[in-house]
Design a protein around this nucleic acid. Structure first.
Lengths: 371, 371
DNA sequence: ACCTCCGACTAACGCGCGTAACCTAAATCA
DNA sequence: TGATTTAGGTTACGCGCGTTAGTCGGAGGT
């Protein structure tokens, strides 16, 4: 194939036309490169590169730009992201490593991050992790996953957990900017983004108070985890603001499942009679427990929200939206956390300062029908 | 810096030692290349490449291999996947485009695919799609996503849907091998992997028959979708094998939600009295509807499975495992479909023939406590 | 008539790596 | 003893692209 750029433009055009049918047919297998485009447009590859990357400070005639655009179109040229990354020394990729792939709970973090990355014209490489999966066949998967991501030359790392907690991030993550989502660095070095549990707890109880409830039962999680601590603290704040206190007798911890919620609700409900100290509302620290509480309440012939109002936490769609009545709950801002994570990473990789070492994201109240 | 490989090995070693402290300290910023490793080990870059890629038909002394391994270790060398892909003309990447990122329903497909890809030493690029998201801000996202994946030079494409249906795949997907998961090509060209709905339906009803139920109510989905057609067909098969028929009066369609299931169950339960034709078991074509059916049953003072046995379909963990009693259901084999998708893609890209144009994957019965 | 400047490009190098082809000294063989 | 093989490498090229440092012809200025 003639490669001389000295070849007359007429000849080039003729050849190009001849190939057009070819190119748009099945003959084009793969590998249309920038050089092909350049040849077809009758310019140098450099010029094509300048045009395609919208380079400034470079004057290229409108006519040439058009010819190049046509050539791109006709040949079906598609840039090679890998080659570009190699030459430009930047990949436009972020990596996210998470056990979310395994546990669908907080898949919205990925969605939020994806969307934001898309807006920023960046690509998200998702890698699996086995943080919580000690018994699986994937021991050490997490380190290997980060390693793989670094081999792809990601410019930054997101590390997400399915539930709010402290984590230890593998050392290799230190080689690029890293942001934790829905968890925080137990070693206190890396920036993180977590839900504002405290405010969420306050909002929930405020909603109950606003509906006229003053005696509120709390179905608590394992009291040691950040979610329980924060949410309970918020609940106390709200009560305090109303001049009330949280009756310790009304706080029952249980296993974070529907069965646990059922048992806890039974304990509370059976301890008192109606009007004799029995709470008129239940704040369940997660939706699964609320699901169990529903059963306990219904079993006793009580109605929701008539006799007992219920408010949950987490907004697990499959539960909250399908319970009957639909559950009013406080949502965890997974999408926002994911998006903020990407934005924070962008700032970090650009060398800009970030707002704070630990950023809190609001947990909004989702009104449905259980209060 | 001396680049002569003729330099005596002693000298090279000395220099290397001098640099070691440097390399293991903070001075290493980024960009340890194979050339660095080669220099440090006192060999040519080619040799390093041969060793690292375990190339056969090449004899390299054990001593040299060790020196190279040490150099890799000491310098913290990490291969550059992009450069490798460029040079070798293969990326080891598959792309998966799916609305699953948006709707967490079938995120297990991703997990299955990820795991299999990991075993095959391949990387999965996950891109969002807006197939079902007509009102979102992401119009045309899907085409753009595929385009992006092709720019990364993925070797194959997986296209996954959240629920079993026919889809139209964007044309650009034809440029690389493509496999559909949990959906099939409405144009009938691309290979696909779908759940075996029919067998699933049969298994469910067989389980009910085995428990002694002969009068079985069916809470149906929209009767036109593949899931409903297949599952119902399977149910009929199972009954036929037992010499029974499906009473059309016992098949009620409803909206695919808990409310829909509640309404449908009410219809069936209120039509008959106990022992007067009222079914003793309900086959709900999805778990959400089973959730609603639970309420209808409990509301009438009936017990599960004592008075009415219930069996679901889909195995939506958050529902099935947390209902009380826990729901016996037929699982959709998302993970297996994802894994099989990757395996099929591997065969395709290797030029091997695939088993069939449409591969069915079994839906296993998950025994819990509602039958 | 000469110099300068500017518009419109192009030549050439390097990113990090895979790989075909080649090279050299020692061991083996006829 | 000379020819040939073999172990153990090395040289050089190219993958597709970004980017710096030019080149070249003509318009404007003096």
């Amino acid at each position: 194939m003639a490669r001389s750029t000295a070849e007359s433009k007429a000849a080039t055009a003729a050849k190009a036309t001849g190939e057009a049918a070819n190119a748009s047919g099945k003959a084009r297998q793969r590998g249309v490169t920038m050089t092909d485009v350049a040849q077809r447009a009758g310019v140098s590859r450099t010029t094509v590169s300048f045009v395609l990357s919208n380079r400034e400070n470079t004057s290229i005639s409108a006519e040439t730009r058009i010819r190049i655009a046509e050539a791109v179109q006709e040949l079906g040229y598609r840039p090679n992201a890998g080659a570009r990354a190699l030459a430009s020394q930047r990949s436009d990729w972020y990596g996210i490593v998470t056990e979310i792939v395994t546990a669908p709970f907080a898949v919205d973090i990925i969605k939020g991050a994806q969307d934001q990355a898309w807006l920023d014209r960046r690509f998200l490489l998702i890698a699996p992790s086995d943080q919580a999966d000690a018994h699986g066949p994937n021991q050490g998967l997490e380190d290997a996953a980060i390693e793989k991501l670094l081999e792809q030359r990601v410019e930054g790392l997101l590390y997400a957990a399915t539930y709010h907690r402290g984590v230890h991030v593998p050392e290799s993550a230190n080689e690029v900017p890293t942001v934790l989502i829905n968890c925080f660095d137990a070693d206190g070095k890396l920036p993180s983004i977590v839900p504002d549990e405290r405010t969420g707890g306050r909002v929930a109880v405020e909603r109950l108070l606003q509906a006229g409830h003053t005696r509120i039962g709390v179905i608590n999680l394992d009291p040691d985890i950040p979610a329980a601590i924060g949410r309970l603290e918020g609940a106390r704040e709200a009560l305090a603001a109303a001049g009330l206190e949280l009756d310790p007798e009304l706080v029952v911890s249980g296993h974070a499942t529907a069965d646990g919620g059922y048992a806890a609700a039974c304990t509370i409900l059976d301890r008192y009679r109606e009007g004799q100290g029995r709470p008129t509302a239940l704040f369940c620290l997660n939706d699964r427990m609320a699901m169990g509480a529903y059963d306990a309440i219904k079993e006793r012939g009580l109605t929701i929200p008539g006799d007992i109002a219920v408010i949950g936490f987490d907004n697990q769609e499959l539960i909250a939206a399908y319970l009957r009545p639909k559950l009013t709950t406080v949502a965890l801002p997974f999408e926002e956390m994911g998006a903020l994570g990407v934005r924070t990473l962008a700032a970090l990789t650009a060398g800009q300062p970030i707002a704070a070492d630990q950023q809190l994201v609001d947990c909004p109240l989702l009104e449905r029908s259980s209060v």
